[in-house]
Design a protein around this nucleic acid. Structure first.
Lengths: 204, 204
DNA sequence: GTCTATACTCCGATAGAC
DNA sequence: GTCTATCGGAGTATAGAC
């Protein structure tokens, strides 16, 4: 598996290359060249290419967890937290226009390869889905919370796909505004529903 | 290039395999086995793999054109026509859950491979984008027509990506209803705008 | 038009010296 | 822990018989 500096460098560069070139199109030679080691040395750290993929997915899950933790530190307002997620589209705009969403393109590729790591890669979506659902619940979306979480994921995925195809920064900017507006409307509706129900369910 | 029955069969099977397995993961041996010819025979019809890809994209563009023509025959109502596009998500639901959107996954893969056929593959998006824009213009979306067309493309792409990851038919069903509802609201807004402007711009 | 045979390259993976 | 050397297999592509 991993051990220390070289192992971490392999995962870091593999992560980057899998994102930019795709998993299958990236060879051991590519990664070895990027890290600056020989192909033989490689197998001291990882026995198979699939093991590297597993390590990359694990690393991405840890990175995502750290990103989520940072958002939670930044604000306690669920609407603002969801906006943090949406703003990835702007923060990583040039990468997304060049290579798409790292999660969406990986899960798509693994689905076509019918790869065993599909479940692990889907975990990256589930991680975000669960966290977004919690935020929508805090926002008062109730039973719609998971559906709203999926909506945000799907919308951002769609924007990433089209941004990748057309490399259109203005389109990304506009869609981010639209998602934010939809989110604000969601929050408004939730507040309205909660105000209507209060007289019927008096607090104890 | 192509010539008659065998050539067409190669394109048909390559189209199918590129969709189900991806372009790079599909070898000549795969296509030859599917068609039932030897690998050698192959090169009589196509000189390179890229030539097959070009023929596949060309065939898909023709197929899309035929699909659009069928929608136009079906109804003259722009809202109903756009709904025809949206309903691809239901008509091809099982394929999309298994392999994603044929257009989105191809353009994503070619972007990662930095393949020369990227532009041709994007033509598949542009074909739909232009037609959707025309429908939104007929619906009265005005300067928003292209943005609405992109919205529909992005939304459906996002639904396809998430449906592929989670294989969730209920999610697809629900999102199709949501897109249809948004479309109906679009049409309503356009009519309202046009009614408001009529007193100000009397017809001659 | 279709076949077999084969050249050549690259890949993932292994063995073993240092 | 890192290296060189190499194996076996698959890939694209070609040559030439039928």
């Amino acid at each position: 598996m991993r051990d220390g500096k070289t192992g971490e460098q392999i995962v870091d560069h593999a992560d980057d290359l899998f994102y930019r070139q795709g998993f299958e199109a990236t060879s051991f030679a590519d990664i070895a060249a990027a890290v600056g080691i020989s192909r033989g040395n490689f197998y001291y750290h990882f026995k198979t290419k699939d093991e590297i993929l597993a390590a990359v997915i694990e690393a991405r899950i840890a990175d995502t967890q750290a990103m989520i933790a940072a958002w939670e530190t930044e604000t306690e307002d669920p609407e603002a937290r969801i906006r943090c997620y949406i703003h990835i589209l702007l923060d990583h705009q040039s990468d997304i226009m060049a290579h798409g969403c790292p999660v969406g393109t990986l899960t798509s590729e693994l689905a076509k390869l019918n790869h065993q790591a599909q479940g692990a890669a889907n975990g990256l979506f589930t991680q975000l889905r669960d966290w977004l659902r919690l935020q929508f619940e805090a926002l008062g979306s109730g039973v719609e919370a998971d559906r709203n979480a999926m909506r945000v994921l799907a919308w951002s995925q769609g924007v990433a796909t089209m941004a990748n195809a057309y490399r259109d920064a203005e389109f990304v900017q506009h869609e981010v505004e639209q998602i934010s507006a939809w989110l604000a409307a969601c929050a408004r509706d939730s507040r309205a529903r909660s105000n209507r129900s209060k007289p019927l369910i008096p607090e104890t």
